[in-house]
Design a protein around this nucleic acid. Structure first.
Length: 251
DNA sequence: AATGGCCCCAACCGCCGTTTC
DNA sequence: AGAAACGGCGGTTGGGGCCAT
């Protein structure tokens, strides 16, 4: 990225239309090569900025809303165990980001002292130094909830990885427009997330329509027909101007 | 109503490890 | 093998909103 380009990079809060564009391109290109994605999308943002926006806000796998008591407990326990390993802690909390946990920790515990809130709740029950009841939960309940979360986390990671791997293996015979149905994990609920979900559906529809158009307009060419059934190929094997294509998505 | 202080959180920064060429 | 690009991570900052005065 040259100096001239750097000068024109946008910073600060993301606009809704930028979000929309980023979602479209992440779903087309995948969550990787962020610098390239930033370039071809026409977004005047750095690759890092795009990645961060996706990872911390736009990713439909994210859970928005307040941290639950169980999550808070897990954060406390894991922070005691691992320290400021926010990403490591985040992996144990499905749908939460390292940034979110970091902010939550700083807001709720750092100033007050890590153990300050731990044991101050009216429902916390102690046996000497050991907490045996946490905010109305028995020790067994807390442990069970933690283990459930751990299992859910692993299951979701596994399910998603499996889909990604499957998609990777099937890349030569793609039939679903390259869109990974993340909402199938049941973690989309806010209006904004629903909106994003709509965008994703739009892309899928756009691709299907485009695919159909290409298939019908080039019926004289058998090879083209084969390629046109492959949506991933349709987007990228053609020698079309990607910038031009990106502008059409932006409008 | 104005304002100052505080809180929250999105976004940025810089460093470092990993991957790619 | 080495350099460059990329991606991940933890720390920091800045702005908007809320609340007390």
């Amino acid at each position: 990225m040259d100096c001239k380009e750097e000068e024109t990079l946008r910073r600060g809060p993301w606009l809704e239309e930028e979000d929309e564009r980023l979602v479209k391109f992440v779903n087309l290109l995948g969550e990787r090569r962020w610098d390239s994605l930033a370039r071809v999308s026409g977004l005047k943002r750095s690759g890092k900025s795009c990645r961060l926006r996706w990872m911390n806000y736009l990713n439909p796998n994210l859970k928005h809303g307040p941290i639950s008591q169980e999550e808070e407990m897990i954060i406390l326990e894991l922070h005691a165990l691992w320290g400021n390993k926010w990403s490591k802690i985040a992996r144990r909390l499905p749908g939460r980001t390292d940034n979110e946990i970091k902010n939550y920790w700083r807001t709720n515990f750092r100033k007050k002292g890590e153990a300050h809130n731990y044991g101050k709740h009216k429902n916390d029950v102690f046996d000497g130094d050991k907490i045996i009841g946490w905010r109305g939960n028995t020790g067994e309940e807390v442990l069970r909830k933690y283990k459930e979360t751990e299992t859910t986390s692993k299951t979701q990671e596994h399910d998603f990885d499996e889909i990604v791997n499957k998609r990777s293996m099937e890349s030569d015979k793609e039939t679903n427009g390259g869109i990974c149905e993340r909402e199938s994990f049941g973690v989309m609920n806010s209006p904004y997330e629903n909106r994003i979900s709509d965008w994703i559906s739009e892309i899928s529809t756009d691709q299907s329509e485009a695919n159909h158009f290409e298939a019908s307009s080039s019926c004289n060419n058998e090879n083209n027909n084969k390629n046109n059934l492959n949506i991933g190929s349709w987007w990228f094997q053609e020698t079309r101007d990607f910038e031009e294509f990106s502008c059409s998505l932006w409008s």
